[in-house]
């Protein structure tokens, strides 16, 4: 299963990078979003998925059995990463809107020219 998920992530990365390399700024954002999802999956996978019980301490016992539960640390990391992804997405969208409004183009190569002083 790891094999399949790894290939899936690889494909996501390929798509994300391809979109990043496009000149259209809309596609760039799509690429960033795909990459952030794929990276979350990498973290998830690195925690290991053989043990896939829900990571709670069951009622009545004091400790969880680390042999069974899914690794909780990557989950905590991904949880915040997802929400931050939302913030970033909103920010890029606002940036893109402003950029388009100011320059009237969505071609990134134009950006490098306006960037010079």
């Amino acid at each position: 299963m790891e094999f399949i998920i790894a290939i899936f992530i690889g494909l996501l990365y390929a798509c994300g990078v391809y979109l990043l390399l496009r000149r259209s700024i809309v596609k760039l954002i799509l690429g960033v979003l795909i990459l952030s999802n794929a990276t979350n999956l990498i973290i998830f996978l690195s925690g290991g998925i053989q043990r896939n019980e829900i990571s709670f301490i069951p009622e009545g016992s004091e400790v969880a059995n680390p042999e069974v539960i899914l690794d909780p640390l990557p989950q905590a990391l991904i949880l915040t990463a997802i929400v931050i992804g939302l913030g970033i997405a909103a920010y890029i969208l606002a940036l893109k809107y402003k950029y388009f409004e100011k320059t009237g183009t969505h071609d990134l190569d134009q950006l490098s020219k306006t960037d010079q002083k």
């Binding site: 690889g10 494909l11 290991g48």
Partner: peptide
């Protein structure tokens, strides 16, 4: 060209993951 680069990166990531595990 971009497609080739993208596929290369994808393959790299997949291998890296399998190895790193």
């Amino acid at each position: 060209r971009d497609g080739l680069i993208a596929i290369g990166v994808g393959v790299m990531v997949a291998f890296l993951l399998l190895k790193a595990r």
